[in-house]
Computed example of a mutant assay.
Amino acid sequence: MSTLYLFASAAEPVFDIARVVEDAQADGWDVCLGLTPTAARWLAGSLDGLAALTGHPVRWDYKLPGEPDAWPEAGAILFAPATFNTVNQWALGITDKFVLGVVAEGIGKGIPMVTMPCLNAAYAQHPQFEQSLGVLRGAGVSVLYGEDGFAPHRPGEGNPARFPWRLALDVVREAGRS
Rank of each mutant, 00 (worst) to 15 (best):
T83I: 06
K63M: 13
A76R: 04
P57K: 02
L78D: 04
A76I: 11
D61L: 13
E67A: 15
P65T: 09
I77E: 01
T54L: 02
F79V: 11
A82V: 08
V87S: 01
L47P: 09
T86N: 07
W60K: 00
G75H: 09
W71V: 00
T83E: 07
T54C: 15
T86W: 05
A52Y: 08
G75W: 13
V87L: 04
E73V: 12
R59F: 05
F79T: 07
D48W: 05
L50W: 04
F84T: 05
A70G: 14
L53N: 05
W71Y: 01
I77R: 04
T54P: 07
V58M: 05
H56L: 07
P81N: 09
P72W: 14
P72K: 09
G66N: 07
F84I: 02
Y62G: 08
L64I: 06
L47G: 09
I77Y: 10
P72H: 12
L78E: 02
P72R: 14
W60Y: 14
G66D: 10
A74Q: 10
L53E: 12
E73R: 15
I77P: 05
A52L: 14
A76L: 08
L78P: 01
E67N: 12
A52E: 15
A51Q: 02
V58I: 12
E67F: 10
A74Y: 11
P72D: 11
T86K: 05
P57E: 00
D61V: 09
P57D: 04
W71Q: 03
A76W: 04
V87Y: 05
P65L: 05
G49C: 12
P72F: 13
T54A: 11
L53Q: 14
T86Q: 01
A82Y: 01
P68C: 02
T54K: 10
N85H: 09
A52G: 07
E73F: 06
K63W: 00
A51I: 02
V58Q: 02
K63F: 08
A80S: 12
A76T: 01
